[in-house]
Nucleic acid binder design. Structure first.
Lengths: 132, 132
DNA sequence: GCTCAGTATTGACGAGTGTCAATGTCTCGC
DNA sequence: GCGAGACATTGACACTCGTCAATACTGAGC
């Protein structure tokens, strides 16, 4: 299994069967010290997939707005206006963030509330931790 | 100036005049705790610009290969073969990483050596640090 | 000066992505 | 049940991006 250094201690690999490969907190560290080996293609694609979700100004703002909200959750109705984009666009970005595992969706009545997943974000940050 | 929480303590804002806005270790924290305000458009674009450079499997592999090399530096000739892409493509990716401030280029004779900039990578990781 | 090897640049092409208008779906209140 | 509001989905468009072939550039050795 090549026990390389990894980020996040949770390592709940058996999450949902619907998503075949989405380790919540199990991301290979990008830039390990000199002795560590480089990323494989699969590891690089996994990390890049999550980073792609974050590497977009609008999504970063949405993520930060959710994190800054009380209880670290917010609904689309609160996000559409300050961002200044159409509602379908916001909905699309939120879906990307949910698919990346960075947000969780919960529908309460008519409203859809999105909540931050700190462990996932922490795993990404740890994967980018500098060597030494 | 809105002194928000930031990542990295260096804050050498006056770097090179050639690059107008490339604060090496001065990136606004994305997802601050509840009291912290959300990212502005400029802050989000700055962070996203660096993340875009990293959110690509090939560039992640190149970055990790440079970091894993002895002395944390490597030349293009060492990277082309294991990645399995053409030399212009590798050169292109390296330029993107240099422009993002994640790598530094130094030409020694005919060879171009790329060295990791840990502070920059650390600033990105810190900017993505989870709240609380 | 000339040749050669290591890199960088240019141009072009296909794939991917952010955006919006229009439409669909679901829940609540009447 | 019905209309209204909140959100998701679809289709279309412009734009960006990753890749390669071809070419230009640059430093070393003869």
């Amino acid at each position: 299994m090549t026990t390389t250094t990894r980020a996040g201690g949770g390592a709940q690999a058996d999450a949902q069967p619907a998503r075949p490969e989405l380790p919540l907190t199990d991301l290979t560290v990008c830039c390990a010290p000199e002795s560590g080996s480089a990323l494989s293609s699969e590891e690089a694609e996994q990390l890049a997939a999550v980073l792609k979700a974050v590497a977009e100004p609008t999504r970063l703002r949405l993520l930060s707005m959710v994190a800054a909200s009380a209880g670290q959750e917010a609904c689309v109705c609160d996000l559409t206006e300050p961002v200044g984009l159409s509602q379908p666009t916001i909905s699309h970005h939120m879906k990307v963030l949910v698919d990346a595992g960075l947000l969780e969706r919960e529908k309460r009545g008519v409203w859809a509330y999105y909540r931050l997943v700190p462990e996932r974000l922490g795993a990404v940050a740890a994967a980018l931790s500098p060597p030494a």
